[in-house]
Every structure is written in structure tokens, then in C-alpha cells.
Design a protein around this nucleic acid. Structure first.
Length: 588
RNA sequence: GGGCGUGUAGCAUAGCUGGAUAUUGCAUCGGCCUCCUAAGCCGAAGGUCGCGGGUUCGAAUCCUGCCGCGCCCGCCA
């Protein structure tokens, strides 16, 4: 609890100075307690034992009694060589009453905050999101939201792959195939779900798939012709040919729009889109190649391709990093380096969200940036999502589309609402179900740590019980319900005063309210959204205990103190939910 | 074969800048609605922290060697 630490540090300094224990040492070992029952802050005294040549328990006891004289806001005790500081309920409550709990907003930037650029998703615009690809977007958007909640000024950026082979194939297909040919080529595949027939990411991707099938199975002479034409398009795009880039854009933009529609339903939006071709067209990439070719570790292949020998800088495994093809054109990674240099001009902190398949690539880009004297981005990697029966594969039809998942989530949530609240109007049921469905899907993915493999299970994604988004949402609606009830009382407003005694559940909630900032700081600093998700579950759980034991309205009267606590928790729940992309509705 | 990541109760997961009885949920078992929405609350049971060494007063956490799983090792994106 950083707020507590700040308040008691002076007192500790005084004691420690008199014992001649260096500040750097005790500040390092003073940290959050492991168990709430122990306290909020703990200082293991084992390291001091050596310096003072006394037993740890004795040292802890000495420091403890010296501190007790001038620290009143925390209970201090020493157990087995550990010194525990437990914030007093009165101090925690007074922070709430005084409005010392700062609550920001995840939905807007703080103009005075640090400029953070977060690039996430950046999926090739060639087909609908499946649950696997969406992990990036959900993770990235949550980091965006948490940074805003923290008080930073964030720009969410999507890097659009608008050149190269994949878009080339799509553009070729749209240029050369009609819908009948497409359906013939895909006759052995699952048909297009009629529900998504009007959504371009679902419909146009079939042209791409048909082209891929054709490239596999056509006669040799046809293949040659096709590859030649695609090669022409790709080559032109990589040399910045305007008309081809425009043709490409006409091909992928509707697909991208469809994909963004899906993300929009999840509450995921972007502030800017940057096209890959930009850096080819504006000359950054040629200039970069020129500069890299003068590097000390530059190398050249027989056919004129350029590479950096990263082995000389300690790279293990794959040592050569190719940044120019034999024909003089750039590679994806080269453009990515140029893109990074540009991004650094736009922000103070740079974060990329990437799949684990990009680890090597990211390392190469980072080392190249270092070689150029540029700063390196922070990268958040995530493992792929797989299905219980194995990897997701479009080919084998073993994919779960995000659009289908969201529909299913909405339907199942609606069923639950209809069961639990038979008197709700259909429109209300509909809107609650949408909020619950979307929130549950996001939370299910965000609550586990990203670098761990994730197996998608319908029953988990759509679980509406403890440990889920609806659980948190439910706590919030309870707080909202209290608020609206209290508003019916006119003139209830007495000053909130500290009660003589506080119940355990009250103190537990106060403790969670007071550690909001700690969790947020930690999650933002380490880019670990799941830490904050965990905190939010605890906050909701604490509120539920408070709700049970500490009625705000008793015998037709409002307890002003309890109402103040309830309101602080409500605002905190709301802001935190928004920080994780959970929709804070008022009734459910 | 090489590089990187990961391995915690039946399942899923937290903790991994070393610290006291290893967190939470699901499932299992047992309680709680004349009381602000029970999508809730309380309790019980469940663990060789993949395995073996090492460093340390102290290791799930750091080092090392195995083993399992994943990703990568195009002048693809």
C-alpha cells in the first residue's frame, strides 16, 4: 500500500538511521504483505540481523517498539523476524471520507499524462477475426484503457498491412474471379454463414481462400500465369506504385471495415491507422536501407541481398537479419523498423502487442533499432488460443469466429436474464444480455496471463458465475440500486462520520478501496492486465461482503458513512470495469 | 538439431525484482433469501509448486541439467 508507505516512511527513516541500517536496504525489503491477515506492508528483518549481529526476531522487536511511539495510522507488530504494518481502519476510512482516493477515467486521455502509443491487433485485413486473433485486440485495448485510467495520454494505433503477398492475392482474386468460380473452388469447405453474408470480412475472404486453393491446385501453366500476375502486383506495391496500392486498398478496406465492426462490438476502437506503404512511398524505407548498409555489421549475399549480422551483437540462433532482397525491394521487417522510428517521434512510451510467433522478428527489429541508436519498444507477447481439440485452422474449419462467439454469448446471457428476471421488458433483457455477453468474453480472455497458453472453452467463456465479468457487474448493480434508493430520501444528508466500530467486511472493503491505486500502478507498469482483473474480482467480492453485513439503509434511515463507502466503491467498480472493457450497467 | 517461452490441487488460474501456514474460481460436500437484486454470501475437503542437483539463514520464485507442451529458425507477412 503505497499511500501507507509514504505516510510512515519518515518515521521508519528515523528509527533506521539510529540503528545505522542503510536506507537503500530497508526500502528494498519493505514490501506488500503476502497475506492480508499479516498486514499491508511487511519488512523482513533477516538482512538487518547480520549487520546488527542480533537475532532477526530481536531486531524486529526493537524496531517495532521504537516505531510504535510515532506511528498511529497503522498497527505494527513483529512476528518471527517479520515487521508487519497494518493500516488502521480509521485511517483507511478517513481517506475515503476526505476524498483521497483518486479515481480516473479509462475512457479519456489525461492531457497532462505521458504520451503512450500502443500498437495492437494490426491483423492483416484478409478475413474475420477468430477467437485466437482477437486475443491481441482484447489484450491491447485493455492496456490502452488501463493506461488511460492511470492518467496517461494514449494513442491506440493499428498498422495496416496494405502491401505484399497476402493483399496481392486478395486483389488478384477480386480482379479475376467471379462469385460462381469462388463457390466452385470452395465446394469442399463450409459454406458462408448466411448471418454474415453482408459482412465483408466474412464474404470477401472467400475470394482470398478461393485464390489460395487455385494456387495450390491449378494446372502448371495456369499456376505460372497466376503467380506471374500476383508477383507483378506485389512488386509494384513494394515499389510504391500508386494505382496498384489503390487497387489493393479497394480490395482490403471493406474487409478491414468488417473486422473493425466486430472489434467495435467488443468496445475496441483505434485512434489512428497507419499504412505500411506509407514508409515506402515517402522514402523512409530506401533511406533506412541506405543507412543500414553502412552499418559495421552489414553483410551482403551473392545475389545482392543485404543483411545485418546480429551474431556480432550476441544474437543466438538465427544470426542474419535480411533487410533488403536481391531485387532491391524491402522486407516486412525493414518497413517495421522504419515504422518504429516514426512511432518514436509520436510518443514517450511505445508498446507493441504481438503474438508469440513474432518473438524472433521483434528481437531482430529491436536489435536493429539499437544498432541505429534508436530506442526499443516494450513488447507484450501472448500465446495463441487453441481449442480443446487442437489448433484453430481456417482450412479445417476448426475456428471459432468472434462474431459467432458474441452472438452465442448474447443469446445465453439473454436466457439467464429471462430466467432470473421474468418481469423485465424484452428491450431491457436484450441490452443487458449484450453487455453481459461482450463483457464476459473479454474478461474470460483478459483474466489469464498472456504468455500462458489458452484453451478456448465455450463453458468458460460463457460462465456467468463468480470469477467472471457478470459477477463484477452484479456487484456494481447492487451499488447502483442502493444509490437510486438513497436518492429517494430527501434531506437525509447528515455529515458522514467515522463510526466507533467497523465490521470485518467494512474493513476488508476499505482495504480493497485503498489498494486500488497499487494494483493499477503495478498492472500498468508491468503491462499485466490480468493483475488488475484479479484486483477487480477482489473488490467486487469485498463489496458483496459489505453489502451483506453493512446495510446502508436501516429502519428507513440512511447511514451516511456507509453510503459514502458504498458510493466510493461504486465509482471505483465502474472506473475499473471500464478499464477492463466490462460494461458497467445499472440493472441486471 | 538450435533459439525463445511455458509447466502450480480433478480442471483452470495467481504469486516468480527470493521471505512466515502457496491465491482464486469451476467441479465435490455442508450451511444462508419474512432483511438495499441469491448472477450473491459463509464454511469443508483437495497440493511431491514437472523431475534432479546447486546458491542462500530462507527457493514456486535465482542458477544448472534433464523431461513434457507451445512458438520460431523465408531474401514470407
Amino acid at each position: 500500500m503505497d499511500a501507507l508507505r509514504l505516510e510512515i516512511e519518515d518515521a521508519i527513516t528515523l528509527v533506521m538511521d539510529s540503528l545505522e541500517i542503510p536506507e537503500s536496504l530497508w526500502k528494498k525489503v519493505l514490501g506488500p504483505s503476502r497475506e492480508v491477515s499479516q498486514g499491508d506492508l511487511t519488512m523482513p528483518c533477516f538482512p538487518f540481523a547480520k549487520i546488527l549481529k542480533k537475532a532477526p526476531a530481536v531486531v524486529a522487536e526493537e524496531i517495532c517498539s521504537a516505531l510504535k511511539e510515532n506511528v498511529t495510522i497503522a498497527e505494527i507488530n513483529s512476528v518471527n523476524g517479520y515487521l508487519n504494518f497494518k493500516a488502521s481502519p480509521e485511517w483507511m476510512a478517513s481517506r475515503v471520507l476526505n476524498g483521497d482516493i483518486h479515481i480516473g477515467s479509462a475512457l479519456e486521455n489525461n492531457a497532462r499524462g505521458k504520451r503512450v502509443l500502443i500498437e495492437h491487433t494490426s491483423a492483416n485485413p484478409n478475413g474475420p477475426f477468430h477467437v485466437g486473433r482477437a486475443r491481441n485486440a482484447i489484450l491491447g485495448d485493455t492496456i490502452v484503457r488501463l493506461n488511460r485510467l492511470f492518467g496517461n495520454s494514449v494513442r491506440a494505433e493499428y498498422y495496416v498491412d496494405d502491401m505484399g503477398k497476402q493483399v496481392g492475392v486478395l486483389a488478384w482474386a477480386l480482379e479475376n474471379l467471379d462469385s460462381q468460380q469462388v463457390e466452385d473452388l470452395l465446394s469442399d469447405r463450409e459454406p458462408l454463414n448466411p448471418k454474415w453474408a453482408d459482412k465483408a470480412d466474412h464474404s470477401i475472404v472467400r475470394w482470398y481462400q478461393a485464390a489460395q486453393a487455385l494456387r495450390q491446385n491449378a494446372s502448371d501453366s495456369d499456376k505460372e500465369q497466376i503467380e506471374e500476375r500476383i508477383g507483378e502486383l506485389v512488386h509494384a506495391s513494394e515499389h510504391g506504385d500508386d494505382s496498384v496500392l489503390e487497387q489493393f486498398e479497394n480490395a482490403y478496406q471493406p474487409v478491414l471495415d468488417g473486422m473493425l465492426m466486430t472489434l467495435g462490438r467488443l468496445g475496441i476502437n483505434f485512434d489512428s491507422f497507419t499504412k505500411e506503404s506509407r514508409f515506402v512511398v515517402n522514402g523512409d524505407v530506401p533511406r533506412l536501407i541506405e543507412k543500414l548498409s553502412k552499418s559495421d555489421i552489414h553483410g551482403e549475399a551473392e545475389n545482392g541481398a543485404y543483411f545485418l549480422d546480429l551474431g556480432q551483437r550476441g544474437m543466438k540462433g538465427k544470426k542474419e537479419f535480411f533487410y533488403r532482397r536481391g531485387d532491391g525491394s524491402s522486407l516486412y521487417a525493414t518497413r517495421d523498423v522504419a515504422y518504429h522510428i516514426w512511432k518514436w517521434g509520436e510518443c514517450d512510451t511505445l508498446i507493441n502487442v504481438l503474438g508469440e510467433d513474432h518473438r524472433l522478428q521483434a528481437k531482430q527489429v529491436a536489435m536493429t533499432l539499437t544498432e541505429l541508436g534508436e530506442k526499443v519498444p516494450e513488447v507484450l507477447f501472448y500465446a495463441f488460443i487453441k481449442l480443446p481439440e487442437g489448433k484453430m485452422s481456417t482450412r479445417r474449419g476448426t475456428v471459432v469466429f468472434m462474431d459467432d462467439l458474441l452472438e452465442e454469448a448474447q443469446e445465453r446471457a439473454a436466457e439467464v436474464v429471462r430466467n432470473l428476471r421474468p418481469n423485465y421488458e424484452p428491450e431491457l433483457v436484450e441490452s443487458i444480455a449484450e453487455a453481459v455477453g461482450v463483457s464476459a468474453v473479454r474478461f474470460n480472455i483478459i483474466k489469464v496471463s498472456p504468455e500462458k497458453g489458452f484453451t478456448f472453452r465455450w463453458e468458460d467463456a460463457l460462465a456467468f458465475e463468480a470469477g467472471s465479468a457478470p459477477f463484477v457487474m452484479y456487484s456494481h448493480t447492487r451499488a447502483c440500486s442502493i444509490k437510486s434508493k438513497v436518492e429517494e430520501f430527501e434531506g437525509f444528508l447528515e455529515e458522514a462520520e467515522l463510526p466507533k466500530e467497523m465490521s470485518e467486511s467494512m474493513v476488508y472493503l476499505l482495504r480493497k478501496i485503498n489498494s486500488f491505486q497499487d494494483s493499477l500502478d503495478y498492472a500498468v507498469r508491468n503491462r499485466q492486465a490480468h493483475i488488475f482483473a484479479n484486483y477487480l474480482l477482489e473488490l467486487a467480492n469485498a463489496y458483496n461482503g459489505f453489502y451483506r453485513d453493512c446495510h446502508v439503509i436501516r429502519d428507513g434511515k440512511v447511514d451516511a458513512f456507509r453510503f459514502k463507502i458504498s458510493e466510493t466503491a461504486r465509482k471505483l467498480l465502474k472506473a475499473s470495469m471500464e478499464g477492463l472493457g466490462i460494461i458497467p450497467i445499472e440493472r441486471m
